[in-house]
Computed example of a mutant assay.
Amino acid sequence: MRKDKNEAYCAVDFAFQRIGGKYRGRILWYLNEYSVLRYGELKRLLQGITTKMLTQTLRELEQDGMVNRKVYLEVPPKVEYSLTPASVELIPLINELRKWADRRIIERPKSGEKISC
């Protein structure tokens, strides 16, 4: 039994705590695609995400060692996000999940909407 809600049961649980959720995997994917993104750029790419949720998710990814946050001391403040070496290791695995999903999306009933990441 877990003592702490953030303590993993096993390696699979640990991994999904780092990349699970609605936006974490997509944020990592977009940071891989664009190398470096600013907050506003991420917000535009992640359709439907609220400001609060994006801020919270980026903080969690940073705390988990998955995202670098670089602050430039200028006015207005400039903050850039990029992948850490640990998250770069995940990109091939996320890509495999994307390929799997691409095959499964074809099988589901058509809703008329195009899905792309």
Rank of each mutant, 00 (worst) to 15 (best):
M1Q: 10
M1N: 10
R2M: 07
K3G: 13
D4H: 10
N6D: 12
E7H: 07
C10N: 15
D13W: 06
D13Q: 04
F14Q: 09
A15V: 13
A15C: 12
I19H: 02
I19G: 00
G20A: 06
G20S: 07
Y23G: 01
G25P: 03
G25W: 00
W29K: 04
Y30H: 11
L31T: 02
L31A: 04
N32C: 04
Y34E: 07
Y34A: 03
S35I: 13
L37V: 01
R38N: 09
Y39S: 04
E41A: 07
R44G: 04
L46G: 05
Q47V: 14
Q47R: 14
Q47K: 15
G48M: 03
I49Y: 00
M53P: 01
L54P: 02
T57S: 05
Q63N: 12
G65Y: 03
V67F: 01
R69Q: 11
R69T: 10
K70Y: 11
E74H: 04
V75A: 13
P77Y: 04
E80S: 09
E80Q: 07
E80V: 06
S82G: 06
A86T: 08
S87R: 04
E89V: 06
E89Y: 08
I91E: 03
P92W: 00
L93R: 06
L93Y: 09
E96A: 14
L97C: 13
W100I: 08
A101H: 10
R103V: 07
R104Q: 15
I106H: 11
I106V: 15
E107N: 07
P109Y: 08
K110A: 14
S111Q: 13
S111N: 15
K114D: 11
S116R: 14
S116E: 15
S116L: 10
C117R: 14
